[in-house]
Design a protein around this nucleic acid. Structure first.
Lengths: 153, 153
DNA sequence: CAATTATAATATACACGACAACAATAAACA
DNA sequence: TGTTTATTGTTGTCGTGTATATTATAATTG
């Protein structure tokens, strides 16, 4: 390193951004291990869960609905749903009134996998965050507040 | 959705994993906007910062050192450092005593960019987490504890 | 010292994640 | 009604992340 240049580094433990990044990396690696045996990736699971959630209140869920529900962009949804279709976890049909849109539904197989995945992920999360103990609700509040405050612009 | 199957969804606000994922997504999008003008990606910034940090105490930083410091895996470091070399932000030389290893150093240009990036990122983080106010140290403690607890296995 | 084991870096493959650009069609409105 | 605008979905590109396997070389040990 050029000797004449001095950097001012904060200690990692004082940098919430750094900590957030590190923690997320660990969490995603753990999620991956849990979902791999179910033939699902993290994103595939999230989109499948979003579809399951939306299906409770609508019988004509479109790709845009899934994108909005999961805060994913529509290109990602398009690509991942194609993969999920190949895996026979979902099916895509023409929309009745809007020929641009596609109606996405869970297959039996997809519903079964989603059930397993929801349970597995919840158990893993429970263990991952267990160190917080009774402080978990407080942690959740922090996270929810931060998410709310930083949405959009 | 197959009508006979019922899913049990937790409310998103009660799921720390979901919240962590959502928050990280927002944070990464914001980081990207800040780093784009500096011709750096998130990962490139992290590795550059790890290199800067290590350079303070060592004059023979290897790729493995950077990988360990940043908790990134070796392949990632190999690929990203190649890109950073093309951008003239770092240089890679043969190691004196270990011919397998490469010694990584910041170039002048790289050091200047890193300085700018460190400032920009810290300002962005400061704004991103400002809603926490005086609860920030508490939040940092939660994050540090979670990270520590979930390292490795 | 020779054989085994561990380590540093790379090659390749698959799957995101963000973005730009595009085609088709629906909705809004002059 | 006809034109503009918005919406739905797709394709393609760049840059991660993770896993497996490979090459070269260092370190360990029988």
């Amino acid at each position: 390193m050029p000797k004449e240049i001095e950097f001012i580094f904060k200690s990692p433990d004082d940098s919430p951004g750094y900590l957030l990044g590190q923690l997320t990396m660990l969490w995603q690696r753990k999620q991956k291990k849990v979902l791999d045996p179910l033939n699902l990736t993290q994103t595939q699971f999230v989109l499948l869960a979003a579809l399951g959630w939306l299906s409770k209140v609508s019988d004509a869920v479109t790709q845009i609905d899934i994108a909005n529900q999961s805060n994913t962009d529509r290109m990602m949804v398009s690509k991942v749903l194609r993969t999920l279709e190949e895996k026979k976890f979902i099916s895509r049909q023409e929309h009745q009134t809007d020929t641009r849109a596609k109606v996405i539904t869970l297959t039996h197989e997809g519903a079964k996998i989603l059930q397993k995945a929801l349970t597995a992920v919840e158990n893993t999360d429970s263990e991952f965050f267990s160190v917080l103990g009774e402080r978990l609700p407080s942690f959740n509040q922090y996270m929810a507040k931060l998410t709310e405050q930083n949405k959009d612009h």
